[in-house]
């Protein structure tokens, strides 16, 4: 009989991520696929590949929590939890002492503050606008005719980053084109865009007291994003090994915890519930 597995699936606006855990919490499978048009199909694909790595089957899945923008479109999920809770849970597991998490995703950017017990105390998200998100970068990269990877490579070579003043993605695009026309180096314009996102993050919430963990797809793929955040936040910035999977990892941990929580709710093992929550 194969081991019982606990699955987290994060259906984001750009990518769908999956993480599979063993009962002892060991991460044994993971995958990332584009979310595309069909969220359910993307979730299935990511799950199948993750289970292959974990040497498991659908029958061995004991619990599954879905998260992200498309969390309600995951047929296998037993529960839906917001990515805010999941990113907090995933990052906390990697960095138990971290009290601030910055997640730069495709559609949303979030700053999450944890309390002294490591539980979510406060969070802020970008408004209904692409400023400060991965979509902002994609939109401008498209305008300049380069890939996201190229923008990152250019930005990492910048020596005097351009200041992009516009808050709005549309106006920032126009401003970037003006800078191109004025002959400013592509490297500096590129870094200016990452700095613009970092500036939006600092406006969301005052981040104080200790290191900040950075999660999400933009941080996973763009070293320039991490550098810009380090400069803007003026604090230690920690980048986990799998930043893009933080939400799926947190969801998988919640799937694992759920059984414990249910036991607690029925009054049989509340001490374990609390210890899990307060870890």
């Amino acid at each position: 009989m194969s081991a019982r597995l606990f699955v987290g699936i994060d259906v984001g606006s750009s990518a769908t991520k999956c993480v599979v855990l063993r009962e002892d919490g060991e991460l044994v499978g993971h995958d990332v696929v584009p979310s595309g048009f069909d969220f359910a199909e993307s979730a299935e694909q990511a799950l199948d590949q993750s289970l292959r790595l974990a040497k498991g089957t659908r029958d061995s899945v004991a619990a599954c929590v879905s998260t992200g923008y498309g969390r309600e479109r995951v047929p296998i999920a037993d529960r839906h939890v917001t990515e805010i809770t999941c990113h907090a849970r995933g990052a906390r597991e990697w960095y138990p002492k971290v009290r601030h998490i910055v997640d730069v995703g495709g559609q949303d950017t979030k700053v999450i503050r944890l309390n002294e017990h490591g539980n979510m105390a406060d969070y802020r998200m970008n408004a209904k606008c692409a400023a400060g998100t991965g979509t902002f970068l994609e939109s401008i990269a498209l305008k300049l005719g380069v890939s996201l990877k190229e923008i990152d490579e250019l930005a990492m070579r910048s020596t005097a980053p351009t200041v992009v003043n516009s808050y709005c993605t549309v106006f920032a695009g126009t401003e970037v084109l003006e800078r191109v026309k004025a002959g400013e180096p592509r490297e500096d314009i590129s870094m200016g865009m990452f700095r613009s996102i970092a500036a939006r993050v600092t406006e969301m919430m005052a981040v104080r007291n200790g290191p900040v963990a950075v999660t999400g797809g933009v941080a996973a793929h763009c070293g320039a994003m991490v550098r810009a955040l380090k400069e803007a936040l003026e604090t230690e910035v920690l980048l986990p090994a799998m930043p893009q999977h933080a939400g799926a990892y947190g969801a998988a941990l919640l799937a694992l915890t759920r059984e414990v929580t249910l036991a607690g709710e029925s009054g049989t093992d509340l001490s374990r519930t609390r210890s899990e929550c307060d870890r």
Binding site: H80, E83, T85, N115, H117, M120, Y123, R124, T273, C277
Partner: peptide, 29 residues
């Protein structure tokens, strides 16, 4: 979608607070 995310996250945090009695209240979105 954004409205739902904020509201769901808020009640999730209230729910966790219920489990962890006596802990300081989670705040806001």
């Amino acid at each position: 979608a954004q409205m739902k995310n904020r509201i769901d996250a808020f009640f999730e945090s209230l729910q966790y607070k219920r489990i962890r009695e006596g802990e300081p209240a989670p705040a806001q979105a």
